[in-house]
Design a protein around this nucleic acid. Sequence first.
DNA 1: TCGGTATTTCAGTAATTACTGAAATAACTG
DNA 2: CAGTTATTTCAGTAATTACTGAAATACCGA
Lengths: 190, 190
Amino acid sequence: MNLPPLVQSFVLHFGEMGSRWGINRTVGQIYALLYVSPEPLNADQIVESLGISRSNVSMSLRELQAWNLVLLKHLPDDRRDFFTTPDDVWQILRTLAEERKKREVDPTLSVLREILMQKPASDAERHAQVRMGEMHSLIERLTTWYEDVKQLETDRLATLLTLGAKVTKLLEAKDKIVSLGRSKRTNDKG
Amino acid sequence: MNLPPLVQSFVLHFGEMGSRWGINRTVGQIYALLYVSPEPLNADQIVESLGISRSNVSMSLRELQAWNLVLLKHLPDDRRDFFTTPDDVWQILRTLAEERKKREVDPTLSVLREILMQKPASDAERHAQVRMGEMHSLIERLTTWYEDVKQLETDRLATLLTLGAKVTKLLEAKDKIVSLGRSKRTNDKG
DNA sequence: TCGGTATTTCAGTAATTACTGAAATAACTG
DNA sequence: CAGTTATTTCAGTAATTACTGAAATACCGA
């Protein structure tokens, strides 16, 4: 590996984290490299930078494409493939969220739905179904929320995040007003 | 494996998803089993239900404890350890979020901070640092939001989720009013 | 202290996943 | 079409991760 020290730290870290993130070391390193590169890179440049085999690069790029995490670019009068990541980190976040949902949540949701359709044949199954129902409701709630906020334009999403707790404050205030109204009416009657 | 069919589907699914979720098959299966069991189970019951070795159960339970995903229970006059999952799925969600953040996000945040402290020694490094800065800002934003909402009581959190898009509507309305005010003033001047 | 039971540890092995080099395919050029 | 370059495929191997059985440890009650 032959990279500027600062870039190398970043690339190596992504390689190490890869396994925790559900990708392998090479995929993590390639992504990191593309992310910080000022220009798109071709496969041979990646081979050169990371010191891995050409075939490994090919397979890893394919995986990154399956994740929609890289963009394929072509330079004029050059038939090699060049790769980058999107410039906009918010776009990257959206892609990550979408792909992880697709891989890590959707299959479970569909299995849960299937199981919940079936008739329990014992107390054990009846209890299990109740628990699975609870899990299913929670996941549905989270995905509905997600489908909702993913539609937002970036600056609205940013606002929403920054607001975070303040939205809560608003809800609390609303609750107080409502309950004040209620207790006032209650007092009126007493 | 000897389980009611409905439970078995669930357990097998969690086993399969394990690798995508960053745990292994056994850990996934044990978690699923405990989650749907009406009563806490001891290690031998798990061995029996899943048909795996006693030592594997021991190691996997240890891993689940490291994730804070299981509770250790003791029955009177029985010195064996019994395990369950929390009843409250919202609590489970919080734990999952916390642990995944700890494992998958925090290390990267700290590496980014470290790299961003250093002085770039070339244009390449300067550019890389800018990109890492963008990533860092985004992650900081997300984690700040997370620290914020994780404080919420469950019913407030549920409300927030259900609101989802509506909060946005509110923001949009606010923006419209503000921009209306602006254009009115602009018109007044023209 | 001893015998019995519960749990953990760990070296060895099995299973899975990652990676390489060589060969095949594809895509272009003269 | 033959030659050149880019990319992919895939069988074989390396590396990593998961699992087991046996032994060690821990704990308890007589």
